[in-house]
Simulated assay, not measured.
Amino acid sequence: MNTIRSLARRAALAAAATAAVASAAAVHAQGSTADEIAKYRQMLAEGNPAELWEAAGEELWKKPAGPKNASLEQCDLGKGPGVTKGAYAELPRYFKDAGKVMDLEQRLAYCRMTLQGLTREEATKNPFSSSGKPSEIERLVAYLTGESRGVKMNVQLGHPEEKRTYALGEKMFFYRGGAYDFACATCHAVDGQRIRLQDLPNLLTDKGAQAAYTTWPAYRVSQGEVRTMQHRLYDCLRQQRFPEPAYGSDVITALTMFLAKNANGGTYDGPAMKR
C-alpha cells in the first residue's frame, strides 16, 4: 500500500511539473524549442518515479513464484546465472540454451517458464499495464535495465544468429508498409526532422542511436507508467499503421538488435523519463 501511495505521489508531482514547465515555456520561452525541452526533461529527471518501478521489480525478481515456487535469481541474462549488473547493455544476444537470439523481455519470459514453471501464456500475461492492471513485466524490466545504468552499450555480432538477427532488424527498419507506406527510416534515417515539438533522432548515426536507445525503458508522464522497449516499438508500428506485432516476437527482437548495436559505445541511462 505504501508503494502504491508513493507511486501516486510521484506521478502527481511529475504531472504538476509537466504543467508548470509547459506554462513557463509558453510565457517565457527563451532559446530554441529543443533547449527548452531539454530543460524540462532535466527538471523531471530529478524526481523520476521509475525508481519505484525498479524497487518493485527487484522484489518480484527475488520473490518465489509459480508452480516451482522459485525466484528468478538464477536467471542467466548472458553474464551467468543471477548476474544482473551490466547484462542489459549486452542484449539482445544469442543464448545457447534457447538456441536463439533474445532481447530482455524474451529472456525474462524464458526464465519465468524454466525456473518458475509458468506457461508461456502466464509468463507473458499483461506485458503492458493499463488502468487498474499493473504489469509485473514492466516492473521486472525496470529493475533489470536499471542494473546497467552507467554501463557502456556493448552488443556483439559474434554468433551467426546474431548477425542474421541484426540483418533482419536492418531490413525491418527500412521496410515500408501500412496505410501510410511508412518505414522506421521515414522518420529516423535523416538529421533535423521533427514531429510536433519532438526532435526525431537519426538512428543510423552513433549519436542519434545512443541518445535514443540508452534512455529506454522510460517512465511516461502522460501515461503514468514505465514503458519497455517492446512497448516503444509496438507503439511506433501502431502509428505507422502496421499490423499489431505479437508480444515477444522475433521480428521485434531483430529490430531491437539493430537499434542496440547501433547504440554501442553510448552510456546506458535508463529507465529515463519521457513526456
Rank of each mutant, 00 (worst) to 15 (best):
G117T: 04
A98W: 12
A109D: 07
G117W: 11
K85G: 06
G80W: 08
K96E: 15
A98E: 13
M102W: 05
Y88K: 14
P92Y: 10
L108W: 01
D76A: 04
G78N: 09
A109L: 02
G82I: 04
D103E: 13
A109E: 06
A109S: 14
L77E: 14
Y94Q: 00
P92I: 05
V83L: 09
Q106L: 06
T114P: 02
D103R: 13
M113D: 00
Y88R: 07
E105N: 11
Y88I: 09
D97P: 01
T84V: 15
L115K: 04
A87G: 09
Q106I: 10
Q106M: 13
G86W: 10
T84M: 09
E105W: 04
V83Q: 07
L91I: 01
P81I: 08
D76I: 09
K100M: 14
E90K: 15
L108R: 04
L77N: 11
P81D: 02
E105H: 12
L115N: 08
K85A: 13
V83Y: 07
L77P: 06
G86T: 05
Y94D: 01
T114W: 01
A87T: 09
T84A: 15
M113S: 00
G78D: 05
T114C: 03
R107W: 09
T84F: 15
E90M: 10
Y110I: 05
D103A: 14
P92V: 03
L108T: 03
G80S: 12
L108G: 01
E90Q: 15
M102I: 02
E105A: 13
M113G: 01
A89E: 10
G117R: 10
L115F: 05
P81N: 03
K85E: 12
V101T: 04
C111H: 03
M102A: 10
L91T: 02
A109K: 03
A87P: 03
L104N: 08
G86C: 10
T84E: 13
Y110H: 14
Q116W: 00
